[in-house]
Write a protein that binds this DNA or RNA. Structure first.
Lengths: 206, 206
DNA sequence: TGGTCTGTACCAACCAGTCGGTACATACTT
DNA sequence: AAGTATGTACCGACTGGTTGGTACAGACCA
């Protein structure tokens, strides 16, 4: 029993690993099942034992990508309530930049890529993606509002609006560094984003 | 001769029309030659008389998209030298927003889409796209510098950097409104972009 | 007549998805 | 303990349909 569960996890995970890797650079349509099978060393019949279609694989990958992003980038930046809220945002921005630097500007944002590829062509994915970006935005909105009640951010500015703008600009920055293959592009954009925040920042402490 | 040129233009243009329309919503890989042929009513042999491959069609479409963008959105906003440079930028931002509104948030930015889909998978397209974004950015940089020498924009800020940021943020904004299908998202982002510019704006006239 | 166009039949490669069958561990009988 | 049945995990050949691309015959026009 233990072995069977282990075995299942193993194979399924192998498929997910390979597919995530491939789809990150080639996209959903650009990655064929055969590619995934070759890369993971899993047979076709076995694949369809774990996933009932390529679409389901797509959703599983998206889930996995999101979980990774939330656990490795979003939460670590926002989880600590003792840290000043604007610090948390800065740390998050740096985290996204760092991820992109490590990837050498290859792949871009997996969520952004899928959004671009599938939003107008697959309503299910579009909705899922929209939820994800909303969650992301809300995390930022929360921190910004906290900064306002805190006194470190001007109460005049619309936190939700600002958060929306931050998410959009970050996605755009990642895309632009993916096209140019120059990390400096992202550095510039993150710098501008910080500068923008600084304009609404009052000198107040946490 | 006149007729033959006309005829060529006709068929070639029909193909380009259909392909541009289809690829705008379904992407490069998501649009098959047969789709294009069906939509344009052109035979296969005829297609390969005008284009030697799907790739060449892709380049032709990209050229066409760029020309359309430059002629219909970029140049009309920046061409008039009598207009104050910051006004030109505002007009440009509004133009992009309006285009997106007219499209009901469907399709997104054709250049951004291709960039996202092909940058890591097709070096030729990546380079072409990178050039395009550079040209776009330079138009903005020029206007910003003019605003600086003009006295209406703070000389402290880096025009090139700011232009890069504007392009990236716009692309991100378009993408986000494509995912959410809400034009308000773009309105917000354009609003924030204008607010950001306003921070560096001195009250000086043109 | 000779180049410019165009439609049709065709191709091999590839696509997602299905199929019949195997190996093997466990559970249920008797 | 032996025999039978069941569920899980796996394989690779195969299917129908689609892909980008070619071959070629004929039509149109100069």
């Amino acid at each position: 029993m233990t072995t069977s569960v282990r075995a299942e996890k193993h194979t399924r995970e192998q498929i997910l690993d390979a597919a995530t890797r491939l789809m990150h650079v080639s996209g959903y349509r650009g990655t064929s099942l055969d590619d995934v099978l070759r890369e993971s060393g899993v047979g076709k019949g076995n694949f369809y034992y774990y996933f009932k279609s390529k679409e389901e694989l797509g959703y599983a990958i998206l889930d996995r990508i999101v979980r990774g992003f939330v656990e490795r980038t979003l939460e670590p930046s926002f989880a600590d309530p003792s840290r000043p809220p604007l610090d948390r945002i800065h740390r998050f921005l740096d985290g996204v930049l760092e991820t992109q630097r490590q990837r050498n500007c290859v792949g871009g944002c997996p969520m952004g890529n899928l959004a671009s590829e599938l939003s107008d062509v697959h309503e299910g994915f579009r909705q899922r993606l929209a939820e994800i970006f909303t969650h992301w935005r809300e995390r930022l909105t929360g921190a910004l509002r906290e900064a306002q009640s805190n006194g470190s951010l001007a109460p005049a500015c619309d936190a939700g609006r600002l958060a929306q703008f931050l998410v959009a600009s970050l996605e755009g920055a990642i895309l632009m560094s993916k096209v140019t293959k120059e990390i400096q592009v992202m550095e510039m954009c993150v710098g501008e984003l910080k500068a923008y925040l600084a304009h609404y920042t009052t000198g107040a402490p946490a």
